[in-house]
């Protein structure tokens, strides 16, 4: 038996439903292996990544 839908609760729940249905994309989480950052230096000669240290790009 469905419980009484009181106005404020019903509206909040309906809004939550719409949010879950048509949610915006979450922020991207970008990860790269740490393994190669040393190799990328000299071994990365000729355009395989510049020599400056890269900031972490996790947002």
């Amino acid at each position: 038996m469905a419980s009484q839908l009181t106005a404020p609760v019903g509206a909040a729940l309906a809004a939550e439903v719409e949010d879950l249905l048509g949610s915006a994309e979450p922020e991207g989480i970008y990860r790269d292996t740490r393994e190669c950052t040393g190799i990328l230096l000299l071994a990365g000669l000729l355009l395989l990544s510049p020599p400056t240290p890269r900031p972490k790009s996790v947002r």
């Binding site: 990860r31 790269d32 292996t33 190669c36 990328l40 990365g44 355009l47 395989l48 990544s49």
Partner: peptide, 14 residues
């Protein structure tokens, strides 16, 4: 492919 992997691809092409 992560960043390093895609750099590898581009260099393979070059």
């Amino acid at each position: 492919l992560d960043r390093h992997g895609v750099y590898g691809i581009t260099h393979d092409v070059f």
